[in-house]
Amino acid sequence: MTTAIRVMVVDDHPMWREGVSRDLSAAGYDVVATSGEGRQAVRIAAAARPDVVILDLQLPDVSGVEVIHGLQTEVPGVRVLMLSASGEQQDVLDAMKAGATGYLLKSAAQAEFLDAVSRTAAGDTVFTPGLAGLVLGEFRRLATAPPAGPDDAAPKLTERETEVLRLVAKGLSYRQIAERLVLSHRTVQNHVQNTLGKLQLHNRVELTRYALENGLD
């Protein structure tokens, strides 16, 4: 038997935290830690070394983006599944760009939630139709926004990637998309993952440029 996947739950609501932990334990996950605050979560994660962090986007102390950066520094390779009780558009997008690997609304059904956790643990990205719309919008914005620097190249989606994301945004499942475009389920998954990868890479380049321009001269 393989060792259970180590999961950490970060949410400022104790009832929610307990409920989710119970569900995860029942589904065979090893809940190694829980936390109600962002800074504390980063400290605990360094010791608990989770594989997957279930992270509430709105924490009382620090922003989701800061928690994600902290987690990545302390636990390289950690996967973050974000949950939010509300579709805070810009916050969701920022957290995804910062390195979260999946996003789900808190109102998602229990089965949907557990499926998302297992996919996150397997290294897949978890997209909602809403997130696909946000990512498409962000690529569109980057393409039309004036470049930030002389060597700044806005990331671009291939035609296929755009096609896949549009179908995700219209609520089609990966299986339906694969059928419609005559692709394998895996290929659809890869296309979605690539779009997020491009956005996160661009974000890291931007952050480095910002640091060079504002901090190191």
Partner: peptide, 13 residues
């Protein structure tokens, strides 16, 4: 118009 049955997606801006 967003509800459990209706999903609204689009750009953040």
């Amino acid at each position: 118009y967003a509800s459990p049955e209706v999903t609204v997606s689009g750009p953040a801006d």
